[in-house]
């Protein structure tokens, strides 16, 4: 059984279910839409504030965009648990490592591709409304941040996919990760700056900053998020490997 055949099958799986393809499209659409709503109104005013990293400010829409990435990873996995669809999948591809690896690769690659495009979309859309606060693509960290946003979104999608295979439910993953990213992460910052820096969202977002004051730089930060994603993928793999379906 060839890996390309299994990859093709996983590709069809994603594009043939609206609840999976939808969130992926929503990554790009929300990146543009939220940038268009935010920056013409409060873009310059916020860019003028001292304590805000000027590069990171361009990626303000990412706060919402990453929820779409979470939903994409979660539904790509949980669609296998709807009505026991996994039984069909594993009867067709009984080598579970091949099945799981192909799904992770397709989910990761799609999230990366759409994420990178979204990164550039956020960067240029925001800059269009910032006037004298605009940042050129040639400035330090600018190009890195565009690709970095895509990398970050791909890792978050994989993190979510791994958890969804473990918990067998997109609802469980969304109700775990969305409050975590929107609330818990901010609360932990209040308690301890040191711990918060190592959380999957905070660490990876370092790649979007111009100045690095915390313990992690842009690449070590995204590396920490990659470790989180790797751990979640391993946990999901452990569940797929040993469970009867």
């Amino acid at each position: 059984m060839s890996a390309t055949a299994v990859l093709r099958s996983e590709w069809i799986k994603i594009w043939s279910v609206r609840s999976v393809a939808g969130p992926l499209v929503a990554v790009l659409v929300s990146a543009l839409a939220i940038a268009l709503v935010t920056f013409p109104n409060i873009g310059r005013e916020q860019a003028a504030t001292e304590e805000l990293d000027p590069l990171f400010w361009l990626y303000y829409p990412l706060n919402f965009v990453q929820i779409a990435a979470i939903a994409f990873g979660a539904t790509a996995a949980s669609s296998e648990y709807l009505n026991g669809a996994l039984r069909n999948s594993l009867a067709a591809v009984p080598r579970r490592g091949l099945f799981y690896g192909a799904k992770a690769l397709v989910v990761g690659a799609l999230a990366l591709a759409v994420g990178v495009v979204s990164g550039f979309v956020m960067f240029f859309t925001a800059n269009a409304f910032l006037g004298e606060y605009a940042i050129g693509i040639g400035e330090p960290g600018a190009l890195r941040s565009c690709f970095g946003a895509g990398l970050y979104l791909a890792l978050i999608a994989l993190f979510s996919m791994g958890l969804a295979f473990l918990l067998r439910s997109a609802v469980a993953v969304l109700s775990l990760l969305v409050p975590f990213i929107l609330i818990v992460s901010f609360v932990v910052v209040g308690f301890s700056e040191g711990v918060a820096a190592w959380l999957p969202d905070r660490a990876g977002q370092q790649i979007l900053y111009q100045e690095h004051t915390g313990p992690l730089g842009p690449w070590t930060g995204i590396g920490v998020t990659a470790l989180w994603a790797g751990a979640a993928l391993l946990a999901g793999w452990w569940a797929v490997r040993r469970r009867d379906v």
Partner: peptide
């Protein structure tokens, strides 16, 4: 045991 949102043809295509 098939995803209800897929069309019958896509279900068979991916298999």
């Amino acid at each position: 045991a098939a995803h209800p949102s897929r069309t019958g043809r896509n279900h068979l295509r991916l298999l």
